[in-house]
Amino acid sequence: MFSSVTLSILGALVLASGAAAQATAPQYGQCGGQGWTGATTCPSGWSCVVSNPYYSQCLPGAASSTPTSAPSGPSSTPGGSPTTTASAPGSLPTLASGNSFIRAVEDPNFHQYLRSEVINTAGDAVLGDYTTAAQFQIVDGQLIQMVPDGSKLYAVVEARSDPSVMKLKMSWSTTPASGDNAGTFMWSGDTVEWSIPTIQRPQLNAWLVCPDADGNKDVYINLGPYDYNTPPGCADETIHAYTGATPTP
């Protein structure tokens, strides 16, 4: 038989479990996933959206008190497009299967992460804070930013106007790169490289990070030269894949 003390403890545990299930998760907070024992209700006007079988998140939208059913099996299949986890102030993106974060590993941009200037939209490619890191794949020579809503952004490199131009700006487009804006992205170990038949580069993994007038750290292909010949205000960088569960500072 259970003692009165044991019954009291069991009752307290049941009440605590029920309270956790009934609590409201914060905006952009976790609200479900395999093994999740916390709150599963989102604030009014927010819904619990499945990112992968292990993580659901409160995102703006129609209110929902329970998370959408998680898919059975992996979040991606060979040749498919894994879903990414949305990032928001105060939270960290969770890396989806098959994706990589991309970051610089040297000062002055140590552990600054590749993304769009305006997060998850077409526009300039920049390095930003780890809390806003985007996720990527390289497929058929295209560097693809995997947007949380399931869409894709493609890296586009500006065409070289003449041989005197020694850096080419990179941006994100809703359509794949082609022609003079294409070239080929590839991994060399964990390093991102870029090449194009019309340009001979001393180093295929050389990049420049140059702040614009607003302080955004714009990303360029560096055609050379390097080190002491780096353009004023810019940093000569390499950028690398990082496949930890979440980005680190």
Rank of each mutant, 00 (worst) to 15 (best):
Y226K: 04
D149Y: 01
L92R: 03
A122M: 02
Y226T: 08
E117R: 15
D227N: 10
A213P: 00
L168P: 07
K152H: 07
P232N: 11
Y228C: 03
N229P: 03
R103F: 02
N181T: 14
D124R: 14
G123Q: 07
D140H: 03
L127S: 07
S173F: 08
S100D: 05
V156I: 10
Q145A: 05
V209G: 08
E193F: 00
N120H: 09
G179C: 11
Y113W: 03
D218H: 10
A122G: 05
V139F: 00
Y226Q: 09
L168S: 12
G215Q: 11
Q137F: 00
G98Q: 03
L223T: 08
T191I: 10
L127D: 05
D214A: 15
I199M: 04
T174A: 14
T94Y: 11
A155E: 11
V156H: 14
P163F: 00
V209C: 09
K152L: 13
G123K: 09
P176R: 09
Y113I: 10
V219L: 15
I199L: 10
T184C: 02
Y220H: 13
E158I: 07
G224H: 11
G128L: 08
Y226H: 13
S97T: 12
Y226W: 14
D180T: 11
D149W: 01
Q135M: 10
T174G: 15
P163I: 04
R201D: 01
G233H: 11
Q200I: 05
I196M: 08
L204F: 02
D124M: 09
T131S: 15
V209H: 05
P93H: 02
L208R: 04
P176Y: 03
D107A: 15
Q145P: 00
S188T: 13
D190C: 00
G224I: 13
T94K: 14
P202S: 04
V147G: 11
N181R: 14
P93G: 08
Y113V: 10
N216C: 00
I138S: 05
V139D: 03
G141L: 05
W187L: 15
P202T: 04
G215Y: 09
G183W: 00
S171R: 15
L208C: 11
G150W: 02
S100K: 02
S100M: 01
L95D: 03
N109T: 12
M170K: 05
Q203K: 06
I102F: 02
V126G: 00
Y226M: 10
D140T: 07
D190G: 04
Q112W: 12
V219E: 10
E193L: 06
R115V: 10
A177Q: 06
S97P: 00
G141V: 04
W187E: 06
R103C: 07
S171C: 02
S195N: 08
S151Y: 01
K152Y: 00
N229K: 14
V192C: 01
Q145F: 07
P232Y: 03
Q135A: 11
E193I: 13
A213M: 14
G233A: 13
L114Y: 07
N181A: 10
L114Q: 09
P202Y: 03
P108Q: 03
M170C: 03
T132V: 15
Y130V: 01
S171A: 12
T121F: 05
